[in-house]
Design a protein around this nucleic acid. Structure first.
Lengths: 220, 220
DNA sequence: TGAAACTTTTGAACGTGTTCAAGGACGAGT
DNA sequence: ACTCGTCCTTGAACACGTTCAAAAGTTTCA
């Protein structure tokens, strides 16, 4: 059985994620995880170099689930507003069990040195997967999105999604009702806003926004 | 001299801020601060309940300086784009000495429980001061901003400012050149974008955006 | 089988932020 | 001068994340 090692790793990860969900980030100490999993502290560190890496495990799992659920939800919707709603709502859905954990997660994720940093190298795969969801939401929509927007839009929407996630973390309303409202309100607005790109004066501004985005992105 | 106590407090704060600037957040341990200030660790805690509160001290100081510098810069500029630039550039100016400290600061600031959280209660004063800067930038601009926007715009701009600050933290270009470019590019775009509010079709979308903002804000 | 090499596991130890009981300093009232 | 009460200060102690030398277990190969 080559899986003995993998088994321990999974055990630690499972216990950690369960504890993150049930008692939060701070109360889930490495010692508690080890004890609950029946291993030594050092052994947990043999598989995960830091507590942050256990958070990364969670991040990846949540992203994977989002990809699956969102793809399914997208099957039955055509218009951009609806597709955007689908992606955002499913995103919130998969995060829901971890809401109380949210602020600690974001505090961890936001430091550039963290493996969970959504802009960082260590989560390139997760970010690409997430971006792919938005690309699919945009590309598959009908009526189609203006061609000049199609390239950059997914990335901008993903960025907006990060904003929604931030809002959700702070959202103390029951069941994060306000976040749902925000999504329901913002998605159609974004779609309508984009359709304004055809108006000459407005189109110019759009072009400049895209130009700025590209400039700032390139010049590293 | 009733100021003996205040003197110790200031000493600790000054030493801490200096160390934050010079060696960063993590290397500035409470023990190191205490030693450098010539007091005991416990004594530092008598004045500051946590390391976070020392960060708050920094936050307040930076905000205060921003208010002064921005007000001065606003005196000589009339148009909205210019005024926005002035406020944002001075904002980055005052933060500059703390750039390496930035990500730790934000990681601290972003948790709702932190005294430095910009949305939280403990920094109501600092937030109001910051908001006032943006209100002044909007209200004092000529040509005037559309009336229907004038009420909510400062808050939205402040929010955008938080975004700029986040961008700045991640900006590794020398002297944070990219952030400067972003400001120079975005400020005129915002001004031009707002002037589109007069166009009937666009105005509707603007109204809905404002409506959404209000809805989401009220429903707590 | 046996020994060498590699993988996995252990728990004590380190430095951190934070707490707290104990004591010192100092002024007010007698 | 004495004592009470308040403010200030101390440093040992705690739990935490993390490290690491050493031990235990497992595989490899002759």
């Amino acid at each position: 059985m080559a899986a003995k090692s993998e088994q321990t790793r999974q055990l630690v990860a499972d216990v950690a994620l369960k504890m993150f969900r049930e008692i939060g980030f701070e109360k889930t100490t490495m010692r508690a995880i080890a004890q609950e999993a029946g291993v030594s502290v050092g052994n947990a560190y043999y598989y995960f170099a830091s507590k942050d890496e256990l958070v990364q495990e969670l991040y990846i799992q949540v992203q994977d689930e989002h990809a699956v659920v969102a793809a399914q939800a997208l099957e039955s919707v055509q218009d951009l507003a609806g597709r955007l709603k689908a992606v955002l709502h499913t995103g919130v859905d998969v995060m829901a069990p971890y809401h109380q954990f949210g602020s600690d997660f974001i505090a961890t994720a936001i430091r550039p040195s963290s493996p969970v940093n959504p802009f960082g190298e260590a989560s390139t795969a997760a970010r690409e997967a997430s971006l792919a969801i938005f690309r699919s939401a945009v590309d598959g929509s009908s009526p189609a999105v203006a061609k000049k927007l199609r390239g950059d839009l997914p990335e901008l929407l993903w960025l907006a999604y990060m904003g929604v996630a931030l809002f959700w973390v702070y959202d103390k309303s029951e069941g994060q009702r306000r976040t749902r409202k925000l999504i329901d309100g913002a998605a159609p607005l974004v779609a309508r806003g984009l359709s304004l790109a055809k108006i000459p004066g407005v189109g110019k501004v759009f072009d400049d926004v895209l130009g700025l985005v590209r400039t700032v992105k390139e010049d590293s």
